[in-house]
């Protein structure tokens, strides 16, 4: 028996080029979503690992909760001012008074890391929200609108896909100037095509569902049907993808800050901390090591949680 599952069939439609063999959907897309374990041919041996408690996942949640706490109330986690410079404390290696050391101005690295959580997470969240918002509008219009609209939107998406994320962001920065907001918009715009394709694919799945037909037959207004029935039923897989997308956008955002297009220098932000620390590689390893670890752990946690959520929603880990 072949279980039909909305995400998998949605993905199959999202991958415009149908790849050969049994693999549904564009493998790049599948890989990014972490849709790597297929529910169909799972042998008992392969699934045994899933049923057990997963300490890695618990750690990911723990780390994420700590991050959220740091983003909401950084002063609860550290009493040290991240901007308090003290020249004679410069370049102190990690010790009991400065757990992660101090930077070139004698500022505490741990405090800066903790206060840097908010801009770094916001970068991922806001840009994902921008991409998701526009993606939902475009995807709904493409999935529900007339063929002409669908064709036009999908061609636009094809064009946007032809530009690598970072290059598209750099084009936007070149023409509309530098600054935190421009960077956020640039990262968000770069993620529009992914979301729009997903929303369209989901919409196509939900569009033909009996309950939508029923609502239409009952004479509900088209907009009401879309808002009350199509969107809520299509949104869950999309939200899961957005979660995984936040990790991706945190990376792009940090990369742009690292290149000097993000938050302005005195403010603590992980990408710009790395950019500064890069100048002191020879004498202060702790300036780059901790922000690196923070970025990697954050993205790993978000991705692991997103993938687990995805697997659960597909009913794989019973």
């Amino acid at each position: 028996m072949k279980p039909t599952n909305p995400v998998a069939s949605g993905l199959a439609r999202a991958g415009l080029r149908s790849p050969p063999g049994p693999l549904p959907g564009n493998p790049a897309l599948r890989a990014m979503l972490g849709l790597l374990r297929r529910p169909t041919r799972a042998s008992p041996l392969a699934t045994r690992g899933d049923a057990t408690v997963r300490p890695g996942l618990a750690l990911a949640w723990l780390f994420l909760i700590a991050l959220l706490l740091a983003a909401i109330a950084p002063h609860w986690l550290t009493g040290v001012d991240p901007l308090a410079a003290a020249a004679r404390n410069a370049y102190l290696p990690p010790s009991s008074s400065h757990w992660l050391g101090t930077d070139e101005n004698g500022r505490d690295v741990l405090a800066r890391l903790i206060h840097g959580v908010r801009p770094s997470l916001l970068m991922g969240l806001v840009s994902t929200a921008i991409g998701l918002g526009v993606g939902i509008i475009l995807g709904l219009a493409a999935g529900l609108g007339p063929r002409l609209v669908d064709g036009a939107i999908m061609r636009l998406i094809d064009v946007l896909l032809a530009f690598p994320d970072l290059l598209l962001a750099l084009v936007i920065i070149t023409f509309w100037g530098q600054g935190l907001w421009i960077t956020l918009i640039a990262v968000g715009v770069a993620s529009i095509p992914r979301f729009a394709r997903m929303v369209r694919a989901q919409t196509l799945v939900v569009r033909d569902a009996p309950y939508v037909e029923a609502a239409t037959t009952l004479g509900r207004h088209r907009a009401a049907v879309v808002l009350r029935h199509v969107l809520p039923n299509a949104i869950k897989p999309i939200l899961i993808l957005a979660t995984i997308g936040i990790g991706h956008n945190i990376i792009t955002g940090a990369a742009l800050s690292f290149l000097g297009f993000g938050a302005s220098p005195p403010a603590p932000e992980w990408g710009s901390m790395l950019a500064m620390g890069r100048n002191y590689l020879a004498n202060a390893w702790w300036l780059v090591a901790w922000p690196s670890v923070a970025i990697i752990l954050t993205v790993v946690s978000i991705t692991a949680i997103g993938r687990d959520w995805l697997a659960r929603s597909e009913g794989k880990s019973r």
């Binding site: 940090a254 790395l274 620390g277 990697i296």
Partner: peptide, 16 residues
């Protein structure tokens, strides 16, 4: 871990 690590972070760590 590898697919979550951006090139610039890996690059800095390698340099270090």
């Amino acid at each position: 871990v590898l697919s979550s690590s951006p090139s610039f972070v890996l690059g800095i760590l390698l340099l270090l």
